[in-house]
Amino acid sequence: AGGSGIAAFFTQTGVGTQVAEGGLPRRYNPDGSIAVASPAKDVRTFDTAAGPREYVLEEAITTDFALVHALAGDRHGNLIFNKAARNFNPLAGMAGRICIAQVEQLVEPGELDPDRVHLPGVFVHRVVEVGTDIPKRIERRTVTPEGV
């Protein structure tokens, strides 16, 4: 929602829970006690086809900086993500006021197929080429021995 310019939205998720009522820890003191608790959220009732229902107002997530990793990109910030990296990187990039993308392969503008671009350059403010030899600690290949 934050990347789409939606400041907040109503949802049934969280109605009647501590999420809506407030009091969840946001920050702890060094001794483990709660330093800052979440405030209560606005709950409104709307008439729906199924009758009146309560909804909780959720604020969109936005950040000062978005750091994303792309398989390929161009100087204009158009990015292509690899496999599961496509799940959240485009959304995270859109939600940041400043998006910094590290790309494994930097290509010239026009070399990327527009149908394969997952995050348009309008959302990306800086591009850093890191190459393909960087360590990717989250990516591990596991192979099952034959016959198992």
Rank of each mutant, 00 (worst) to 15 (best):
A1W: 14
G5N: 12
I6N: 03
I6E: 03
A8E: 08
F9C: 08
F9N: 13
Q12K: 08
G14K: 05
V15S: 09
V15G: 10
V15M: 12
T17C: 07
V19Q: 10
A20N: 11
E21N: 05
E21L: 15
G22A: 04
G22K: 10
R26T: 11
R27T: 07
P30D: 14
G32I: 07
I34E: 07
A35C: 02
A37E: 12
A37Y: 10
P39S: 14
A40W: 14
A40Q: 11
K41G: 10
D42S: 03
V43K: 12
V43G: 13
V43H: 07
T45L: 03
F46P: 02
T48L: 05
T48W: 13
A49W: 12
P52M: 10
R53L: 06
E54R: 08
Y55D: 04
V56R: 04
V56Y: 07
E58K: 07
E59R: 11
E59K: 10
A60H: 09
T62Y: 06
T62A: 09
T63D: 05
D64F: 02
F65V: 08
A66M: 03
L67M: 14
L67D: 10
V68Q: 01
A70N: 04
A70E: 03
L71W: 09
A72H: 02
A72Y: 04
D74A: 06
D74Q: 07
H76F: 10
H76E: 15
N78K: 05
L79D: 00
I80E: 00
F81G: 01
N82D: 13
K83I: 15
N87C: 11
F88D: 11
L91Q: 11
M94Y: 06
I100V: 13
I100A: 12
A101M: 04
V103G: 02
V103E: 01
E104C: 06
L106V: 00
V107F: 14
V107R: 12
L112S: 05
D113L: 13
D113A: 12
P114N: 06
D115E: 09
D115G: 01
H118Q: 06
P120R: 02
G121M: 01
V124F: 00
R126T: 02
V127A: 01
V128F: 03
V128L: 02
E129A: 08
V130H: 01
I134C: 13
I134T: 10
I134N: 06
P135W: 11
R137F: 00
R137T: 03
R137C: 01
I138K: 01
I138Y: 08
I138P: 02
E139W: 08
R140H: 08
R140N: 15
T144W: 07
E146W: 12
G147E: 14
G147S: 12
